Amino acid sequence: MILLAILGCVLWAGYSWLLAHPEHNPSAPLDLRHPVGMATATKLAALKDDVSECRAVLERSDVGFAALEPIGEGVCARPDRTQLTQFPFAPNSPPATCAVATAMELWRTTTVEPAAQELFGSGIARIEHLGVYFCRRLYGRSEGAWSEHATGNAIDISAFVLEDGRRITLLGDWDGDAEEQAFLRRVRDGACGVFATVLSPDYNAAHADHFHFDQDGRWSGVCR
């Protein structure tokens, strides 16, 4: 009886701890305002094939977005076009898959903003991108696998503009001053926890001027 009582207390303590820490609780609904925890990656991965739940996460997290009409056909059809309406994108806010939009918001709040404040003492005014949708195969080849850009399931990030006016670019600052280098590598590494694929200038020359982020169906994680 004593052992059962002890076991009961341990189980209750564990259950109570999970209730108090939903970021570690696999059964708790994902909320992007919570810290990143042990269950976050699994919850994000589940959103890739569940657009309705993904958009429910954005609503639950009080993230502004618009659900746009599907367009296209064949391999480049875009049944999921989710546009963040309050994200500091430049030059525009491009429609992407909901999984990409959700990961972008989580990356901004948990990695990009804290890194900018810590290293530069400034917030982020704009995050510049080179586009989301492009109906093409990988590297523009005439055959082979299709790019995640072909369905809007990827985004290329080229620069960050701070509230103090400083602009940090992949092309100019990846090997620049120590602070800029540290910032760009920190935001790259932080993206690896929320995107399936993260490619940077360390990967190859084709990515010298941008980060490539996508939500490929795998979840082994590619971070280079």
Score class of each variant (00 low, 15 high):
L30V: 08
R55M: 13
E179P: 02
P95I: 05
A13Q: 15
R137C: 04
A39M: 12
E180P: 02
N153I: 02
T151W: 03
A101K: 01
S220Q: 09
C192S: 10
Q215E: 15
G72W: 12
A96C: 11
T110A: 09
G37Y: 10
E118S: 14
L32I: 10
S27W: 13
G190A: 09
G8Q: 07
A77F: 06
A205I: 06
V187Q: 03
P70M: 09
A77G: 07
A206Q: 10
L44Y: 11
P79S: 05
Y139F: 14
P35N: 09
R167K: 15
R81L: 07
H149P: 04
F65T: 06
Q86P: 02
Y133A: 06
L7D: 04
R108V: 00
A39I: 10
V194W: 07
L130C: 00
T197L: 07
I2L: 14
D50S: 14
T109V: 14
F120M: 03
I168P: 01
S220M: 09
L162G: 03
E113P: 01
G190T: 08
S27P: 01
V63C: 07
A66M: 09
A145F: 07
I71P: 01
S52Y: 05
D62P: 00
R60P: 12
R60D: 13
A67S: 15
N25K: 11
G37C: 11
A115K: 02
E53R: 15
M104L: 15
T102Y: 06
I127D: 00
Q83A: 09
A116L: 11
I157L: 00
S93P: 03
L68W: 06
T111E: 13
N153W: 03
C135M: 11
A90E: 00
L170A: 07
I127Y: 01
F213Q: 04
H129D: 00
S220D: 13
N204Q: 10
R55K: 12
G165Q: 13
E23C: 09
R60K: 12
